[in-house]
Amino acid sequence: MNIRALPLYATIAIFLLAYLICYMQFPAMLSTRVIGNLLTDNAYLGIVAVGMTVVIISGGIDLSVGSVIAFSGVFIAVLLRETGMHPLAAFALLLAITTLFGAAMGGMIHLLAMPPFIVTLAGMFLARGAGYMLTIDSVPIDHAFYETMQRAYYLMPGKGRLTLLGVTMLASVILGMILLHRTKFGTNVYAIGGGEATARLMGVAVGRTTVLIYAFSGFMAGLAGIVFSVYTSAGYPLATVGVELNAIAAVVIGGTLLTGGSGYMFGTLIGVLTMGLIQTYIVFDGTLSSWWTKIVIGALLLMFILLQKGLLRLRISH
């Protein structure tokens, strides 16, 4: 068996086990309504985690995404308030900006040979500050097209709603899977994560790939920002603080190696859903403090880090 796939199997097993426990306590949790809400409520996190997966597999990190989501919401809200622009045009403009922003960070990481941590940390403050420059208040979005998007859903059997947002996330994951597992770009991402110097010797265009990786993460953060603004119907510069850390947690719980070179896009989806499931359980229970989410996620993270250390030992020893 492929030893690198073990964390993925572990992730899937944990998710199924957790779901089973939830189901035994609250049979209602195995309904399409809960599943539909799980997808909708975690759509923005899932989308941003797709970009983060690519970044982490390449051995990097992107701390800017939480701020980029907040910036996106504010940007769209202010643009729609100040101009008569159609939301779709605003979306296109925003995606161009966040993609370029990501590409610029990737370019700096490569050209200046700077650690991604530092460059994207700077990007995090920059994007948050840009949001504040546009407004310091929560700006509501009141547009007919937004209502259309919010009402767009497919009614699954059992009255569960598969919303546009949920579908967007699933589509992002599928796009990410194709990109990562079926393109030369994806193989290059794994190659850089496995060893940048070796990848360069083997002919991988490391610079171009690095720029593309962070551009992709920027694009996904912009898309997550759009989804978040549709979800909340507002733009607020203080929103989604720390979401980058949730995304990293989801990626790691999804079985991706934090040091790069190993992981699966599908695992990230399961990681996001596991985190959402814990939250749903706490809502169902009603007596637990929401901080339990953090505690359980912390424990899961620790477990996966230990699992990966163990696998690393196993790989070295044989």
Binding site: R4, G193, G194, T198, A199, M202
Partner: peptide
């Protein structure tokens, strides 16, 4: 001497 390939691929 050190294999210049990528062990994770």
């Amino acid at each position: 001497q050190e294999v210049n390939l990528l062990p994770n691929l």
